[in-house]
Computed example of a mutant assay.
Amino acid sequence: MKQILSLLLFCLLSMPLWAQKEADQILGKWYNTEKSAQVEIYACGDRYCGKIVWLKEPTYEDGTAKIDKNNPEEKLRSRALMGLNLLTGFEYDEDNVWEDGEIYDPKEGKTYSCMLTLKPNGELEVRGYVGFSLIGKTVIWTRVK
């Protein structure tokens, strides 16, 4: 009886660790669709965020670092793209889906609601949308090897 209780207690205590491991599958570096940038997804508190850590073309022709020139806030237009947070506030739901986050698109200078889905083949489906997730755009990111 004591062994059964010990086993049951072990199983109950290890469940949060298993769930955390499942949620952490998204961690690491990902190529965007065009493979022009790498975004590192990391834990930020109890949620997940992502920032640009590599750019295929990190500078303009004059050698200066690329900046967030399309940002709607004038004071943010001079910040560097390298290190820029693109993904914020994602929470692991279940079935390899991270929801309730936002994605910033520096090409357009716009922020969208977003959900991330890790596919069985290892690709990351990134869906940005306004309002309802049915109205939006989906792109595929691949893990950096």
Rank of each mutant, 00 (worst) to 15 (best):
R77V: 01
A23Y: 01
E99K: 13
N85Q: 12
T111Q: 04
K137Y: 02
T142C: 02
G136V: 10
T117C: 11
R47Q: 14
G136T: 08
A43S: 13
E108W: 11
G50D: 01
L124D: 02
Q20I: 05
V144S: 01
T117K: 14
V97G: 05
L84E: 03
Y104A: 09
N121P: 04
N121Q: 09
Q20N: 09
I52L: 03
G45P: 02
L76H: 06
N70H: 12
K110E: 13
I26T: 08
A19V: 12
M82S: 06
L86T: 03
L17D: 07
T117A: 14
E61P: 05
D62Y: 06
I4D: 14
L116P: 02
P120L: 09
R127D: 04
L116S: 00
Q20E: 12
V97W: 05
K69D: 09
V139F: 14
K35V: 04
E123H: 12
A37V: 07
L124G: 02
E22M: 06
L12S: 09
G101N: 00
Y92T: 05
L124W: 03
K51E: 04
K35E: 08
K29S: 15
E102Q: 13
G50N: 03
G63K: 00
P58C: 02
E123N: 15
G45F: 02
C44G: 05
D95T: 11
I4Q: 15
T33G: 15
E73Q: 13
M1T: 13
L116G: 02
G50E: 05
Q25E: 06
D95E: 15
Y31W: 15
C11T: 10
Y42H: 12
